[in-house]
Design a binder for these strands. Sequence first.
RNA 1: GUCCCCAUCGUCUAGUGGCCUAGGACGCCGGCCUCUCACGCCGGAAACAGGGGUUCGACUCCCCUUGGGGACGCCA
Length: 466
Amino acid sequence: MSVITRFAPSPTGFLHIGGARTALFNWLFAKHHGGEMLLRIEDTDRARSTEAAVTAIHEGLHWLGLDWRGEPISQFARADRHAEVARQLLADGNAYYCYATPEALSEMRETAKAEGRSMRYDGRWRGRDPSEAPAGASPVIRLKAPQDGATVIQDLVQGEVTVQNTEMDDMVLLRADGTPTYMLAVVVDDHDMDVSHVIRGDDHLTNALRQRQIYDLMGWSAPHFAHIPLIHGADGAKLSKRHGALGVEAYRDMGILPAALRNYLLRLGWSHGDEEIIDTAQAIAWFDLEGVGKSAARFDIPRLESLNSHYIRTMDEAELCKLLAAQLCQGQARELSAVEAARLPLALDALKERAKTLIELADKAGFLLDGRPLALEEKAAKLLEGEAPAILARAHACLGAVEDWNLEPLTEAIRGLAEAEDLKLGKLAQPLRAALTGRNASPGIFEVLYFLGRQESLDRIGDHMA
RNA sequence: GUCCCCAUCGUCUAGUGGCCUAGGACGCCGGCCUCUCACGCCGGAAACAGGGGUUCGACUCCCCUUGGGGACGCCA
C-alpha cells in the first residue's frame, strides 16, 4: 500500500508558519516513503473562503519548495459526494434530521455554561419522528453517534487516545442549506482519496475521535493519524493570526532562504539525534513520525537566522548573487550599472559570512554601489577627523602608484606605507575604511580596495583627504 | 466548566531503567585570532516543575498536584 498524505488548509488567509510546517512534514513523510502529497483546499465554508487565500497558499508552498500531486482539490467541488454519504448514513439509520434552530442551540449552550454543564448538543431530535418536524423549517443532518462505550484512536505521535462516547455529541454532517460540514467532508475525502496518513496539528486531536465515529458508522477503515504539536510564539502563547503568526512570505521578506526555513521548521518538533544542519535530501532520507516530539515548541527567530546564515554561506554563489542583486534593487528606481554588478561576485565571499539574512547582505553590500560623495555614518565621520585627512593624502599617493590593482600588491602597498610611517596598521586602515565605505565596519580593507577598483577607490579617498 | 494532550538549560532538543558528574545546537558571557565587523577556534554560566510510589537502581515506568496548550460551532 502506498503512502498518500495531504495538506488541507482552509483558504481564510496566508500560509502561516504552523501550516507551513504541517505541509513540510506531510511532504517529507510522503517523499520518504516514495508516496505523494495531495493539496486539498478545505473551502466548504463559502463565506470565509477567498481566491486570494488560495493563491497565497500556492505561492507560499511554491516558495518553500513543496509540491503536490496533480491539481489542488477544492473540497467544495465534491459537495454532492459528501451529501450522498450523509444520505446513506441517514438511510442506514446512523444519522437523523435535527430541526433545532441556531438560536435554540446557542441558548442551550448558554444555559449549559451557566449551569456548569458541558456545552454539548442534547440530542433533542435524535429519537423524534420526522412527522414532528416544524412546518417550513429546513433541518440539518446529524450523526447518530454511539452513546455508550468509548472511541479510541492509535495516534502515531500522541499514542493511544480514548474518549468516552458520552463526551461527544451528535455532530452536524450536512447544514440546513445542504452543504457539508468540515467534519463530514474531511472523512469522505480522506477515504475517497485513499489517504493513508493524516498528519496535522494537534488542535485536531479531538476532531480525530469524532471523525473516527463516522468512519466506523460507514464501515470504512480509518487512516493512520499523526497529530503534531503546535508552534507557539516566543512568549509561549498560541501563535495565531492575531498573535505574531506570519505568512511564509513575511519570512521571505525578512531575507530568509527557503532552505533555511525548511531546516528550521523540521527541527521544531522533530529530531534525529544531535543533527542540526539537515538539508532537504537528508531530511527525506531521515524523516519519520517516531522522531516527532509531543510538546509544543516556541518560535525562535535568532535560531532561524543562525540557520539562515549557514545556508547563505553554503548556497550556490551565482544563485546568491542574483538574490543579492534583486535585494539591492528593491525599492530603488534604478537597475545596477554594469560596473556595480561586476563588483558583486568579487565581494560576495567576504560579504556572505557577515550576513544573517539577505537584507543584511544587501545592507553590507551597500558600499559597492556608486554614489559619491558617500553618506557617512557617525562613527565613520569620527574616523575622518584629526590627522586622518593627512594620512589619507599619503595613502592616496601611495595607492596611486600601484599598477597591478590586486590583493597582494595592495596589501604590500598599504603595509609598506604603515611601516614607513611607523603607523599601526589600524591607524591607516580605519580612516581608509571610513572613506571607502562610509562605515566603521566592513570586509578587510585590502579586499575593499580590490572590490571597488582603482578609480573608484582613489576617488573616494580623494573626497576626504587634506 | 467538561473532556483531551503535553512538561529536560532562556529557546530548540538528545535521552526509550544502570552508558548521565544529563549531551548537542541557538542565544548569552569570557578569551584567542585581528586593520574594523564578521567567520573560525578555545573556555564558561545555564535544565530533568513538585510530591508520592514501582525497582537493587529512575530524566526514563505508574499515580497525584501544579503549570501550559487544545477541543467543546449549521468554522476549518
